[in-house]
Design a protein around this nucleic acid. Structure first.
Lengths: 228, 228
DNA sequence: CATCCCCTCGATACACTGTATTGACTGAAT
DNA sequence: ATTCAGTCAATACAGTGTATCGAGGGGATG
C-alpha cells in the first residue's frame, strides 16, 4: 500500500466486492489450518479472512465437507511424483516419504488423510503413480493389494506420529509438565504388574526420532511385498 | 484438567434421580454411535438418553474428548487378547484381526482409532499383548518398531475399508446409484489419459471382498518383519 | 429431633458451528 | 428508462460444547 487513502479511489461500490475463487478459498482455509489445526477452520472464519460473508462461499462449495475434500486434494498436489523411470520399490518409497513430508508441513492432513474419499485429481494422480510403481507382470490385483498395504501403513504411521506429537504439545507446552501429569497414572498402571513388557520398554528403550521409526517400518513393509 | 480421566475417580453414586456411572455413560454413548455414527454423539443426546440434563455428565467427564477416549478404550476392551503361549506372529495376526472385527461392530471406532492417545487400561493391555508378542531375544527397540509397523497398517487399512464402505452408503443407498453419480466424473478423468494404470485397474480388476484384502495386506506386512 | 451447611444438580446463558431462507441490490437486457 | 433476473449477504434456526449460578436436598452437627 504505497498510496494514501485520500488519493486512492474507492473500489467500485458493487462491481467486485472481493475477487473470489475456489483456489483462494482453499488457500486461506489451508493457511488457517496450518496455524490453528483443523478446528480453526470454519466457513465463517474462512469467509471473514477473505473479507466476505459466510454465505458467499456456498457459491463455490455445497458443504463444508467439500472444502475439506478440496484441502485434502491440495495437499496431495504438493507431493512430488517420482519419475516414471524409477524402479517400483524406490518409487513407492519416495511416494511414502513425500506423503509424510506433506503431513509434517500440514499437521491437519493427518486427520483427513485416510478418512474421506480422495477422488480429487491430485489424489488420483498419487494413486496412479502408486499403482504404476506397483504394477508388475502379474495380475493387476496384486498391485492393488500392494498399494493398499503400503498406503495403509503410511496413513496409519503418519497419524500415529502426529498423535504422539500432540499428546505432548496439547497437554501443556513443555515435555516436562506432560510427563509430570501422566507419570503418576502410568506409574500406578505399571505397578499393577499387568504390563510387564510395556514397563520394560518404558524403562529400557531409547526413543528414536520419528524419521527413523517411519523409515524402519516402511522398510519392513516394503520388504514383505515380493516385488521385482 | 491436570488429571487424566483414567486416574480420576468417579463421583460417588448419588441415589438421587437416575443412577449414573461412567460405565453407563460410555455404554449409551457407544450405543448412540453404533446407530448414527460419531456425529450422533453429543453430550446433550447422551444425557437425554440417560434421562438427565446435559450438565450432569460433567461430574464424570471434564470434556467431550474424554468421553471419546473412554469410548475408544471400551472398544479396545472388546478385543480378545491371545493366549500368552501363542507364538509371536500368530499373536500379532490375531490381534490385528481382533481389531478389525471390533471396527466391523463399531464403525465409528475407525474414526477414533489412531487419532487420540489411547492410554486407557484396555488400550495399554492391547499394546502390552502386542509388545509381548513382538519381543524377541534382540533389543526391545525392534519390538517397538514391529508393533508400530503392524498397528499402523491395521489402523490405516481399517480406516480405508470403512471409508470405502461409506463412499457407497453415504451417497445414496444402493451401489447402482453411486456408480451412476460418480461415473461421469471418473469417465472424464480417465479420458484425460493421465491415469492409464488406474483405468486399466478399474476395467480389469475384480474387486475382492474386504476380508481378503485385509488378510493379504496383513500377510505381506507380517512377512517383512523378520520375526521368529 | 431441628438446624445448618455444603455440595450437587440442572436451568439458563454464551459463543460458536453449518446451513436455509429471504429480501435487497446490482448489472444487463428490453 | 424500465424491467428482469441473478447474485450477494443479513438474518434466522437448530444444533454444539461448556461456564455460571441459584436452588435444592442429604448428612453432619447442635
Amino acid at each position: 500500500m504505497d498510496e494514501l487513502v485520500w488519493e486512492r479511489p474507492e473500489p467500485p461500490a458493487r462491481a467486485a466486492p472481493t475477487p473470489l475463487s475456489r483456489a483462494r478459498i482453499v488457500e486461506t482455509a489451508c493457511a488457517l489450518a496450518d496455524e490453528g489445526g483443523l478446528e480453526a477452520v470454519s466457513l465463517r472464519k474462512v469467509a471473514a479472512a477473505l473479507g466476505a460473508g459466510p454465505m458467499r462461499l456456498y457459491g463455490y462449495l455445497d458443504t463444508k465437507e467439500e472444502l475439506l475434500d478440496l484441502m485434502t486434494d491440495a495437499v496431495y498436489g504438493e507431493i512430488p511424483l517420482p519419475d516414471p523411470e524409477t524402479e517400483g520399490l524406490a518409487a513407492l518409497r519416495a511416494l511414502a516419504h513425500g506423503c509424510r513430508a506433506a503431513v509434517q508441513r500440514h499437521e491437519w492432513f493427518a486427520d483427513l488423510i485416510g478418512g474421506r474419499p480422495g477422488l480429487g485429481p491430485n489424489a488420483l494422480a498419487y494413486l496412479e503413480a502408486s499403482l504404476a510403481a506397483a504394477a508388475g507382470p502379474g495380475p493387476i490385483e496384486d498391485a492393488v493389494i500392494t498399494v493398499f498395504t503400503v498406503h495403509s501403513y503410511v496413513t496409519g504411521a503418519v497419524r500415529s506420529e502426529i498423535r504422539e506429537r500432540r499428546l505432548i504439545s496439547d497437554t501443556g507446552l513443555d515435555e516436562e509438565s506432560w510427563q509430570r501429569a501422566a507419570a503418576p497414572y502410568l506409574q500406578r498402571m505399571f505397578d499393577s504388574g499387568r504390563y510387564p513388557t510395556l514397563l520394560r520398554t518404558a524403562r529400557d528403550a531409547v526413543h528414536p526420532d520419528g524419521d527413523a521409526v517411519f523409515s524402519a517400518g516402511l522398510d519392513r513393509v516394503l520388504s514383505g511385498l515380493s516385488l521385482p
